[in-house]
Design a binder for these strands. Structure first.
Lengths: 211, 211, 211, 211
DNA sequence: CATGAATGAGAGTTCATTCAT
DNA sequence: CATGAATGAACTCTCATTCAT
């Protein structure tokens, strides 16, 4: 399957535009982004984007809708498959997936956009909440429940665990992508996920079983 | 032919304007915020704002500069005082302070603004990084070192711990302030901090008390 | 929700805008002129002007650059061709060309604009000086030299002659265009040029040779 | 008479303000000049100037009215006294006075202001025309008439002579004050006046002394 | 389908003018 | 008298959106 060198595929236009829009929105912020910049980056004229999207706002909404759910569904899948057998491993996989996704600027672009724009758009906030956060919380709750049932996890609060799992991933994204603050020792998202997961599972205080 | 209506002129004008600006910026985002809205909220006319700040950008910068450092310095103090005696307690205090601050919409407004605007403003990002993040990381590193020296903490990676401590606080702020996703069981930032701290210290996996 | 009314788009747009700008600038002065007035006079909307010129200042500069040199080059040509043969005739032609140009409100509009704006814009002053005044002075110097060599002119100072040639033309322009002070007897720029030229050549004091 | 060191002389305020206004207007142009700049230069606060002048326009008008007439009346005097006895000397004196005045940036500031502002203000143009130009023309006409009657001047057109006398002075002012184009050989207004006067009187074409 | 010239509402900023102190 | 904080109209410039071609 040789990839054709951009034979004008008008069917792909909307996605090309959204890709361009995502890039420009995350670089400049939604309000500061100019439709013309998006058009140019998509290889189109300004007017042409309006053949595919009725407004700049519509692009943002499409972007959020498109991205939302992907990660949440992946998390759901992961938990559904892994939780019954080995909750610890499932939790670790979950964290790795999330951390890796967040550490990749391209993948985290959409969440980052939601992060910056949800504050001034109740629609986006509500949509993301119901399509991503609620689903993620439910999946995490199921995973926790399975682990507790198996005697592998303590019976802790789901929301606390959610913050403990998601928070470091978001923090990692923010620190590396926005503030360019790279970890000193750890040099891959995977290792960062391992280090964080280790702490989540076993805690900062040493265990005394070594007798 | 202006028809003015004069007000008192307290020395506090700049701060009043900054308060109004912070509110409007966090509500609408910096780019969408109108100077006139800020002025009205501060009880002034549009033009009067320019007697105190040369531009809209200057307001944002003043806001960031004003807020930056406060939290970081508080964290530094807290660690310096508490770490030598009881590292666990110091860590818990630190987390509580951070979580409480983040859960208060007024206090977290400035950090939230940085979160949404740093992505498109290298100056803001650099300033916040050097005035807040670097300081916070150093304080946390010192705390960790003290705990390790005292045999109370495992010798883990500072950046991983930083993400584990800060992440949940940021996540809590984002979830409650932006997405209005309140925790189901836990009803105060203080309790959330306790729950998270408990997990950070002792881990999700139960300890074998029997031994 | 714009409700546009489209027009044709000739390649001549920039020139149409400059024509309008020149008219408005000379009528109201650069600072008092409104871009919208220029646009309307050019048959465009305010925003459209900015498709062709990045700023109001750029219009002024374009105007000055466009006009500068035309007259000076014409003067150069005239002198180069006429001076060797008949210096007196060349001088008369030069004066007539200048006087006629200055007396025509459309042609003198650009110089008038320079006259009013150069005082507050060192760039304009420098540009006009080097592109017009220096060239004109050089041409006049050459003409004078040729006349002296041919024994037709006295060996006078170039700068004095420059003021004596240019001054009356500028004065004529100022008096008729700005102060609406028309000559009582002389009714055409051509005749005024002749009268002035006659005085320049032969002086106010009668010659005694008539005997 | 020792000059007191600026003992607050409220009576002189209007003039101090006008001096400041003239300076600022000629530097920046009337429209670009800010009342605050004028106030500061006059050593006052912005509001205080409005105790003496009702508006910025009023300052300009006062300035024009103040300056207009001075020169014209001086020219009138000069002609009235000198013309009957020695028309040539009177003409030379007139030219010298004018040239010297125009070459002094302080003295020529007001005429320069009129030059730049009369174009957009019919009132200023009309006032200056009636208070200065008409008077100057009449004086020059009288001088010419006297000279002709005495057989010393040819019977030329008054308006042409007016342009020939005034033009070089204005040109000298414009070239030196606005375009910073100093004469190469002639180094004083007085000498420039002499050179120009010599040309006006005796012409560029050599006289055949041999007779 | 695609272009890009054109529109016009709107935002930041300036500044002449006013008036409480 | 004098101050300078405050007003608000006006202006430059931007940009989402439209539509003739």
């Amino acid at each position: 399957m040789p990839q054709p060198r951009r034979q004008r595929r008008p069917e792909a236009r909307p996605d090309e535009i959204l890709d361009a829009a995502l890039a420009v929105f995350t670089e400049q912020g939604f309000a500061s982004a100019r439709v013309e910049d998006i058009a140019r980056r998509a290889g189109l004229s300004k007017g042409a984007v309006y053949l595919y999207f009725p407004s700049k706002d519509a692009m943002l909404n499409a972007l959020v809708e498109q991205s939302a759910g992907k990660l949440a569904r992946a998390a759901e899948q992961l938990v559904a498959i892994g939780a019954p057998g080995d909750p610890e491993a499932a939790l670790r996989s979950l964290l790795k997936m999330l951390m890796t996704a967040m550490a990749d600027p391209d993948i985290s672009a959409a969440p980052r956009l939601v992060l910056t724009e949800a504050g001034r758009s109740p629609e986006i906030a509500a949509h993301y909440r119901s399509q991503v956060l609620d689903i993620a919380r439910r999946a995490l709750g199921a995973l926790l429940e399975a682990g507790v049932a198996a005697g592998r996890f303590r019976d802790v609060d789901t929301d606390a665990l959610m913050r403990l799992m998601g928070g470091p991933c978001v923090a990692h994204m923010v620190l590396t992508t926005i503030f360019d603050l790279q970890p000193k020792q750890i040099n891959s998202p995977d290792n960062m996920a391992d280090a964080v997961c280790d702490l989540i599972l076993f805690g900062l205080v040493p265990r005394e079983e070594a007798a």
